[in-house]
Design a protein around this nucleic acid. Structure first.
Lengths: 262, 262
DNA sequence: CTCGCTAACTCGTCTATACGAGTAAGCGTG
DNA sequence: CACGCTTACTCGTATAGACGAGTTAGCGAG
């Protein structure tokens, strides 16, 4: 169809050491960065680029695959290759677990979603007792079995986060925490009602590429990393009362913390 | 050479809908996960896999490229494809800017490196005055020009982090902060000496795939995301006195924070 | 023994071709 | 007009071959 309107892309440099497919990727990247192609806009088709640069299709595909790995573009079978739109991000503020939110009967996710003006949703709920992994056991202080609460969070229909909470059985068994819906304020509110007044949380943050399973549950596009957050909740007696393991789509989040300078 | 000792990898399922190169990637991934190939170990060569599975080379390369995108393996020209070793991580504790560290004359990076038992190094130092970007200007409270301090941090010879600090000129100009080496305790110690007693820091954390420039300066392997951290330092008068923009190799870091439950 | 070259093996780049499958627009039939 | 089919265009998968370039081990000359 469109013979690739001239001017958008330049020529190759045959004298360059740089591989042809990298040169093509460079040109496309620069064009995107300069706004010549806007978010969501369709890039020239493989066939267009084959004609324009006079290279084989595999070379063009290699170029696209670089940009895909960088998270800049995504291909849609039968439609074309598009500049990946940057989805609105959810900001996780450091006061998201403040007691005042729990006392208003809101869970942390709902608090955040409301603030962002989005439509929150929770699915894939699973609550069951299971054997603690080595890591979880260590974090909770040598417990063998735990109550695991798994759930997936969606914002405006898009899965953005998958989380599992682990609690020692002696705390959680037979309480509302072991119910699919623990009630207003979430499990932290229940923990406090059970006498475990919360003192502080430790959070560990990593970033990495997702496993295939994570790509599936979070419907991640190519070139989107995940943020892996492990939070441990401590009560005022210094006991670890919960560990929450969360995997978030990195393109959907900005985490925000406040540190004292003392 | 090695005809791929039988048993390590299975056969393809011709009846499966799953693409052949994905099946091969699945098998290799599973073998790695199960420890059949250990960290740093060489995987079967492309030629081995071509023979073993009876497919073309491009199909095998496609499989490898998936695993590379997942950060599981890395290829070395002329040597082979290897299971990517997980480098030791630097843990950034939430007390890393505590005044007691500054008072001991140590900068945050050195404090951390010492704790990890590694050999810290700083290079690519650049200190100059420049025009503030829109974002930096906003964060610093509408300043036009800033002092920018750029530096790269290495641990045991490996670049792990690239950081730029921006300070308002009225604070930094003509002080030790504008020198390449600001002296013991780093610029935060100098800021306090200049009467800007630090109150708290705001940190914003994102994760994404690196730009080509970032791949180069951090010598990143394929499939390694970066953690992008933007820290704003506030003095006791509520003024933003510094913004530090940091890009970290995600496979080299675990960030750690402590949140109050109140 | 040491040094340098060679040969074999490795991944990197590129071409050419083929067929499959998802999408979308247009045309023709009812 | 409404529906369904055809068709053209898109990316996905796969084959076969070629040459280049980095690495390594071993062989042979000195």
């Amino acid at each position: 169809m469109s013979p690739l309107s001239s001017g958008l892309l330049g020529d190759l440099d045959p004298t360059s050491d740089r591989a042809v497919f990298r040169q093509i990727a460079d040109q496309l990247r620069e064009a995107i960065d300069r706004g010549r192609f806007r978010e969501g806009e369709k890039l020239p088709s493989e066939a267009d680029l084959v004609d324009h640069f006079g290279v084989s299709r595999m070379t063009v595909r290699n170029a696209f695959s670089i940009l895909q790995g960088e998270g800049l573009v995504h291909a849609e079978h039968g439609r074309g290759v598009f500049v990946r739109p940057r989805p609105p991000v959810r900001r996780l503020a450091s006061d998201r677990f403040a007691r005042r939110h729990r006392e208003q009967g809101k869970s942390a996710f709902i608090v955040e979603a409301d603030a962002a003006g989005g439509h929150p949703q929770v699915d894939s709920l699973e609550v069951k007792e299971e054997k603690a992994s080595q890591d979880i056991s260590t974090r909770l202080g040598s417990v063998r079995r735990v109550l695991a609460r798994r759930r997936r969070y969606l914002l405006d229909g898009r899965p953005v986060e998958f989380a599992t909470s682990y609690l020692p059985l002696d705390i959680a068994r037979g309480t509302p925490i072991a119910e699919p819906n623990p009630g207003p304020g979430g499990i932290y509110a229940r923990l406090e009602e059970l006498g475990h007044r919360l003192d502080h949380f430790d959070e560990e943050i990593r970033a990495r590429m997702p496993s295939p399973a994570e790509v599936k549950t979070l419907r991640l596009a190519a070139g989107v990393p995940v943020i892996h957050l492990i939070r441990t909740a401590f009560d005022t007696e210094g006991r670890a009362v919960e560990v929450c393991d969360t995997v978030m789509a990195a393109d959907a989040y900005v985490l925000s913390y406040q540190l004292p300078a003392t």
